[in-house]
Simulated scan of single mutants.
Amino acid sequence: MSDAQDLLLDMIAALPDPVFILTESGRYAAILGGHDRQYYHDGSHLVDFTLQDVLPGDKANWFLQEIRTTLQQNRLRILEYSLAGRDVDGLPTDSGPAGELWFEGRIQPLPNLINGERAVVWVASNITERHKLQGKLQALSETDELTGICNRRKLLAELTQHFNQFQRYGTPLALMIFDIDYFKRINDEHGHLFGDQVLYELAQQCHTQLRSADILGRFGGEEFALVLPNTELESALTLAQRLRQHCQQQVFNGPKGCAQITISIGISTASTSDGNITDLLRRADDGLYRAKHAGRNCVRHRPCETGSAPTMLL
């Protein structure tokens, strides 16, 4: 073997990321590089085994499909996926990173057959830290800093998603908008820090009355919104009553004494005549407006039909 060939093999073996040669049937034809055990496990024993031999059925089928798609399209493909060391039979447990890992896979068809089979080169780069950072940044962009619940942006995105499901499948959907009555008095009498405390504690208390599927968000200031998937009007009104009573019973303790609050609630339900979520939001907001003018600490439902009287629940 020439010096140039030796150098080429040494360079490939020293690649920081592991390089897999995988055939169309899912056989590991070769594994090179990826020797840093801080980021990668030692998978050298996988050579001549198949994906089906060492991976759970669903993961093996996924990798096999990606290989075949790459061969069919005959081009470089880049994708992200998760895989833990425990998912691969025979990987040493005393070395290598622990837990679920995320990888960027760069898959390129090879021009020549490997033992009579078409094959790809699959370069796997560990992007776990980047993936975690992206998750944190996304959570921050969707979370209200003060209360820890959804912010307006996230809430509208969730409402849009569920409204689309309503339009497509007819799945019931209700929306609730509520705010704290006379909240300015709390800020004036106890200070804005106490007001912030009330908003935070109110959000936590509301969660105790909700289902896991319900989506609570801060709409702005002392106003909150609640997306209720798969919820008919009667159930939404019952929840609104329970939520109103629960909030009324809470005592908020601060340095200048304690305070109690009440909330006013407006409700709307999705209708086939709604063009988009703006119609749903407008009716819920109108219900809140009517609740305020009815004396506060009450619930109003604004129907879709023009001219119909609103439903009242004291």
Rank of each mutant, 00 (worst) to 15 (best):
A13M: 13
A213R: 13
V123K: 03
K184V: 06
A225E: 00
A203N: 06
T306G: 00
Q248N: 14
S2R: 08
Q260W: 12
R211E: 09
G96S: 11
R296M: 08
L137M: 09
E201N: 10
L243M: 11
P109L: 13
L91S: 03
R244E: 04
E189H: 13
I21C: 06
R118D: 02
Q249P: 03
E117I: 04
V121D: 05
D42A: 07
D279M: 02
T147S: 06
S141N: 06
N253F: 13
I261E: 09
I127L: 08
F178H: 03
E104C: 11
Y28H: 05
R168M: 04
S82E: 15
F63N: 01
T143D: 05
I114M: 14
M312V: 12
R168T: 10
F183N: 02
G254Y: 14
A270E: 01
A259C: 14
E305P: 00
A14H: 11
G57I: 07
V251R: 05
I263G: 06
L156Y: 14
P16T: 07
S308K: 07
F178T: 01
L83K: 00
L7Y: 14
S82Q: 15
F166P: 00
H131M: 13
Q204V: 14
G254I: 12
T269I: 11
R75Q: 15
E24T: 08
Q241H: 14
H131R: 15
F166T: 00
K154M: 13
H35R: 12
I277E: 03
C206R: 05
P92V: 10
V198A: 06
A30G: 02
N297K: 02
D10N: 07
E66N: 11
L228A: 12
C247F: 13
F219C: 03
G135R: 09
S308W: 14
D181L: 02
T143A: 06
L71V: 09
R68A: 10
A284H: 00
I180E: 03
E24W: 10
E189V: 12
Y200W: 08
H162Q: 14
V299H: 06
E223P: 02
Q161W: 07
